[in-house]
Design a protein around this nucleic acid. Structure first.
Lengths: 190, 190
DNA sequence: CCTTACCTACCTACTAGTAGATAAATCTTG
DNA sequence: CAAGATTTATCTACTAGTAGGTAGGTAAGG
């Protein structure tokens, strides 16, 4: 992975913001120019093409998100509390009228390169594995029903969060996401 | 609602195809020109702006989808079979490497007009109500657990389908969607 | 003769991306 | 250490191509 300096990070911050709010195809180098305060040509100095910008942006997002999940695992010993905290991260995203960056790029699949798509797949699988481990931990702790398949739950949980974010943002109601998450988590508890 | 002639329908067919495969911001009037065989200027004759094209396209899609759901309800007396048949429609979409048109436009929210967003919200609510009624019917038929809240299930089911479609398409594996749906439906059965 | 359904020709604004200049910082070597 | 070479980070100026959209014309048909 390339080491990014301050300017490169600012460019990615702006690109990430627009990707999560409007979509990758809905912003241009001019938007970045206006927000970062460097010329469009200078953006090419850091990211030769828009597809390469997408790849760097995705890599950084996926790494940061994974770090956040590991931090939650460190901070909360309860498996079910880990799930709740992870859900909180997604709820915050919708409260900012944003969509998951990986969900957004997943919808715009054909506009990014194969390496970026691979990152998206890795993202969904990583989150899924993390959820599965949290559930399994909760079952050892006898806080989560023993009869649910941790794996099956994890697969569905990631999907339900992505879908509920999309719908919640459309309605302009973070409560939609909150309701779906609460229903799903309550089904889990003993 | 405007009455659409053959050419208008062809334009919407192409726009719909590209929206579901690449996204609304990822195709141009030139793409429609190439596929339909009329000049870009002629597209404006039917749809003055791209936003109005989006609105007509959404309206037609939502109407067609609703009609399909009502047809399923007519054809299958079993509540649970209705759910299975509805799921089949979504699975077909992913098998064609497409995403739900409303899911796609939901992600591209900022590029469409308020009237279109209202159609999306109507779509998600309509599907949700339809699912709720199918579940309730299944409970009367004693084929579906009595203790699940039909409404809570319906809210989550629509979200889980949208999210699972997004992820399944990213992976290029319709099986992802099928797995999620099977898990969800199995939880329902007595 | 007006409406329908197109067309040609055009416009302005923007798109991502390139070429080449420049100034400053940093590294290399006599 | 000073002189020179290279790298870094930016700029101006540009390009070819595309975007959505408009103006005005035309041929056919009710």
């Amino acid at each position: 992975m390339l080491k990014l300096n301050d300017t490169a990070h600012k460019i990615l911050d702006v690109a990430e913001f627009y990707t999560q709010t409007k979509g990758f195809n809905a912003f241009s180098y001019k938007d970045i120019q206006n927000d970062v305060g460097i010329k469009t040509s200078s953006i090419h100095y850091y990211f030769p093409t828009k597809k390469e910008l997408a790849l760097s942006m995705t890599a950084r997002y996926v790494d940061n998100f994974h770090a956040k999940l590991l931090e939650i695992r460190d901070l909360y010993p309860s498996g079910i509390e880990q799930i709740v905290q992870m859900a909180e991260v997604y709820i915050d995203v919708v409260k900012q009228n944003k969509f998951c960056m990986c969900g957004m790029l997943a919808s715009e699949l054909t506009s990014i390169c194969d390496a970026s798509v691979a990152k998206l797949i890795y993202f969904f699988e990583t989150v899924q594995s993390w959820v599965e481990e949290a559930i399994t931990l909760g079952q050892h702790q006898k806080a989560i029903k023993q009869n649910v398949s941790a794996k099956a739950f994890a697969i569905s949980f990631v999907s339900v969060i992505e879908g509920a974010m999309l719908i919640a943002r459309t309605k302009g109601e973070p409560n939609h996401l909150i309701t779906v998450i609460n229903n799903t988590i309550n089904d889990l508890k003993i």
